[in-house]
Simulated assay, not measured.
Amino acid sequence: MAKAVATKAGFYGAKRVQPGETFEVQDGETGNWFEVEEEEAPKKKRGSSSDTAPSELV
């Protein structure tokens, strides 16, 4: 499920959604009265060796 924010009043399922309200939609769902929020990427662990090249460790 993805989160969406209503830009205009509308219906999703049997629920009336007002502008500014946040609600859940099925993945891949689109509409002209709401915008799907981007999910935040998981944060990298601190000190991970994958984000520092070996030449930078000197």
Rank of each mutant, 00 (worst) to 15 (best):
A4Y: 05
E40K: 11
G13P: 12
Q26Y: 05
K15G: 05
P42D: 06
E39D: 09
A4I: 11
G13S: 12
T52A: 08
A41N: 05
Y12D: 15
E21K: 14
G10Q: 05
P42R: 03
M1F: 04
T22Y: 12
T22E: 15
T7G: 02
A53S: 13
G10Y: 02
D51H: 11
S49W: 08
A53W: 13
G31I: 11
R16Q: 10
A14E: 11
T22C: 10
A4Q: 02
V17T: 11
L57V: 07
S50H: 14
D51E: 13
A6P: 07
E39K: 09
E24N: 13
E56M: 06
T7Q: 10
E39M: 08
P19V: 11
M1K: 05
K3R: 11
G31W: 08
K43C: 02
T7W: 01
F23P: 15
E21R: 10
E29P: 03
R16I: 08
G47T: 10
E37F: 01
P19I: 05
K3N: 07
F34A: 07
K3V: 09
R16D: 10
E37R: 06
G20Y: 02
P54H: 11
M1R: 00
E39A: 10
A2G: 00
V5C: 08
E40Y: 03
S48Y: 01
A41Q: 08
S48A: 12
Q18T: 09
N32M: 06
T30M: 05
T52W: 04
F11W: 11
V5T: 14
E38G: 03
M1Y: 04
E37C: 06
Y12T: 12
A2Q: 07
V58Q: 14
Q18F: 10
A14N: 08
G13L: 13
A9K: 14
Y12K: 13
K3A: 06
G31Y: 03
K8S: 02
T52S: 11
N32F: 03
F23M: 14
P42L: 06
Q26H: 02
D51K: 13
Q18L: 12
E35A: 12
F11S: 10
K15Y: 10
A2P: 00
K44H: 09
G28P: 05
T52H: 07
T22H: 14
V36N: 00
A14W: 05
E24H: 09
E56A: 08
D27Y: 00
T22I: 15
S48K: 06
R46S: 14
Y12N: 14
A53Y: 12
A6E: 09
E56Y: 02
T7N: 07
